[in-house]
């Protein structure tokens, strides 16, 4: 394929771990997207009880064993990925535009706009993310939607700071000044001159962040504040399964490993993108 001969691919694949990351992410995304077709027991993803086959160790019938009410762990992990990925994407879809928009405004206009936006950002950055999410979840109903709002609310400041710094340095680039001298509108300056040049950094950070968002969301679920049963979720599977350690070890350990693998995958992929797009972090 043409892509494998390109300079971009060369830069990306110089570190073989990037390719491993890309492989992990592609396999997980495809499996999650086609979960009803690739999982052995898709009906186990919903409310389902089969006490006859409960707590079975990994075997050829149940590759990663079954949980305490007889549901296939592999099936629930793949459906769990589905929820995690969707959650990560939705969180970033909310957080990134807000963060990027505020960062552009602060960096471009400076003065009072900058002071107000950046001080608010600093306040949010000063609070540990999980604590803030817990606080938000404390007075909202523990639903999937609210979990996403809570995580998004603590994620945008990182993008504000990233884009603010990029905008500040691009502000004095020749082409930005030239466009200003020409009399281009602020909207043109922000969206056509500055944003496209900040995009590689934003995309790289988004990739790296997908892993972290999934991790935080799993933590919330682990604490019982995120995804609610019977919807399969990696964090709540680990939490439930932990009660049955060490006897039914496969119930918590495989979902835990699943979290590890997806976070690792996104991190490696993000590192590869960073090399490819020549972004400094």
């Amino acid at each position: 394929m043409w892509i494998f001969g390109s300079r971009a691919w060369y830069k990306f694949s110089r570190n073989p771990l990037s390719v491993v990351g890309l492989g992990i992410v592609v396999v997980i995304v495809l499996a999650a997207a086609f979960a009803p077709f690739v999982t052995p027991y898709p009906q186990h993803a919903r409310a389902f009880v089969d006490f006859a086959n409960a707590s079975l160790a990994p075997s050829s019938t149940y590759l990663l064993g079954t949980d305490v009410i007889g549901r296939d762990v592999l099936t629930r992990i793949i459906f769990g990925y589905r929820v995690s990925l969707m959650l990560g994407v939705v969180v970033l879809t909310i957080a990134v535009p807000i963060g990027v928009g505020l960062g552009l405004l602060a960096g471009y206009f400076g003065t009072r706009t900058e002071t107000v936006i950046m001080r608010i950002t600093d306040v949010f950055l000063a609070i540990p993310p999980l604590v803030l999410a817990l606080a938000i979840m404390g007075f909202l109903e523990p639903t999937l939607m609210n979990a996403m709002i809570a995580v998004a609310a603590m994620w945008w400041p990182w993008y504000t700071r990233l884009v603010y710094n990029i905008t500040r340095s691009l502000r004095h680039e020749g082409y930005v000044i030239a466009a200003e001298v020409v009399g281009a509108s602020h909207l043109h300056m922000l969206l056509r001159e500055i944003l496209p040049n900040a995009l590689p950094s934003i995309l790289t950070k988004m990739t790296l962040d997908l892993g972290f968002v999934i991790l935080i969301a799993s933590s919330l679920s682990f604490l019982g504040l995120g995804v609610q049963p019977p919807t399969p979720d990696l964090g709540s599977m680990v939490a439930k399964g932990a009660d049955y350690l060490p006897d039914i070890w496969w119930f918590p350990v495989f979902p835990g490993l699943a979290i590890l693998v997806i976070v690792l995958g996104f991190n490696l992929l993000g590192d590869g993108l960073r090399d490819m797009l020549d972004v400094d972090f």
Binding site: G183, A184, N197
Partner: peptide
């Protein structure tokens, strides 16, 4: 009142084609 600056590397937006860069004043005005 227009300008030509010192640094040729940063004079043009790397994400825009030459046509788009040169066309900017024409479309703005």
């Amino acid at each position: 009142i227009q300008v030509v600056q010192q640094n040729p590397v940063s004079a043009l937006n790397p994400k825009r084609t030459i046509k788009k860069s040169i066309e900017l004043p024409v479309s703005v005005h």
